[in-house]
């Protein structure tokens, strides 16, 4: 150890081994208290017979093994919610990935009003999710929908029109339109974050690489597939990971927009866990529903992070 280092670490707060953990401590406490503890509690609930009125686990008698998982699996609504969760997530994330790449490239170019466009693109992310979804709820209302009004005004809706004769589309009352609406709001919600992450990735691509490609005569598509996308892959994996986890676990969109209807056609695991566990009072089954995809999500998270690290190492 050099004399300088010894002098630098004379005080407790100068030592990396002390300062590092100290700085990390608040984050660790936060994660343990607000993520770890509830997660452990949820796991315990899922294997117990607790109800909303009696959430205590007082002994071995309160544990019921896999009974809750067996019960929810035999429920048609649960299976529908599971399928919807996977389908809504996959479709919305494919759309988000495509649109985020396009938007990121557009926003990385120079044009007048770029700052305003960036602001507008980010706006949905800054809006509280419940408020945003409430806005969509009114946009798609069965009586007052402004979309329906516009369609009527341009002759698309109403008697003797392509989408007529009804005067309204009943967006939230028909299965495919309601499912489309849920996916649309998912995309509207997560697109800004994915775009910003990809924009940061694009900005980080060294200028000399792009200059070299230009000099070598590589066109737009060649640069896209051989330079930009490979270099963006690690950060794209991170964006996708966030977006998938947001979509998989989102409660608000289904709850505020459709309450899972019509006939549970937009029910997802998070909303069904809420209805079953909190509103219905069956806390144990609610916890089992909520935790059902935990192993899958953990596996996805590990795989994506590995992919990101590997791609990062290759790029380096």
């Amino acid at each position: 150890m050099s004399a300088t280092t010894t002098r630098d670490e004379r005080y407790l707060m100068d030592r990396d081994r002390v300062l590092g953990p100290l700085f990390l401590l608040p984050a660790v406490v936060y994660i343990l208290a607000l993520v770890g503890l509830p997660l452990v509690l949820a796991v315990l609930y899922a294997f117990s017979d607790v109800t909303v009125a009696d959430p205590r686990i007082s002994g071995r008698d309160d544990f019921v093994g896999f009974d809750n998982f067996r019960a929810i699996w035999s429920d048609n609504v649960f299976r529908k919610a599971l399928r919807n969760t996977v389908v809504f997530t996959l479709i919305s994330q494919v759309i988000v990935l495509l649109l985020a790449n396009i938007l990121a490239m557009v926003l990385s170019a120079d044009f007048h009003g770029k700052r305003l466009v960036r602001f507008l693109v980010l706006l949905p992310w800054t809006t509280p999710v419940a408020l945003g979804v409430l806005g969509w709820f009114w946009m798609l209302d069965s009586v007052y929908s402004p979309i329906d009004w516009m369609m009527r005004e341009v002759g698309l809706l109403g008697p003797d029109t392509p989408f007529g004769p009804a005067r309204n589309m009943y967006w939230l009352g028909t299965t495919h339109l309601a499912q489309g609406a849920v996916i649309l709001v998912h995309v509207w919600r997560t697109l800004p974050l994915a775009t910003v992450i990809l924009l940061a990735g694009l900005t980080a691509i060294p200028q000399d690489i792009r200059d070299a490609a230009d000099i070598d005569g590589a066109g737009f598509w060649r640069q896209l597939f051989y330079i930009r996308l490979p270099l963006l892959l690690p950060i794209m994996a991170v964006a996708l990971l966030f977006a998938i986890i947001f979509a998989f676990t989102d409660l608000t969109i289904a709850l505020v927009l459709t309450r899972g209807g019509p006939v549970n056609d937009t029910q997802v695991l998070a909303s069904w866990a809420y209805f079953k566990g909190i509103q219905g009072g069956n806390l144990a089954q609610g916890a089992a529903i909520a935790l059902f995809l935990l192993p899958v999500l953990v596996a996805i998270a590990i795989a994506m992070l590995r992919l990101a690290r590997r791609a990062g190492e290759e790029t380096a």
Binding site: S142, V143, Y144, N168, Y170, W171, T174, A178, T258, P262
Partner: peptide, 15 residues
């Protein structure tokens, strides 16, 4: 109409 499948508790009032 199919709207009755997608209502919340206030919807029939609004109609």
């Amino acid at each position: 109409t199919p709207e009755v499948f997608g209502w919340n508790a206030a919807s029939n009032n609004q109609l």
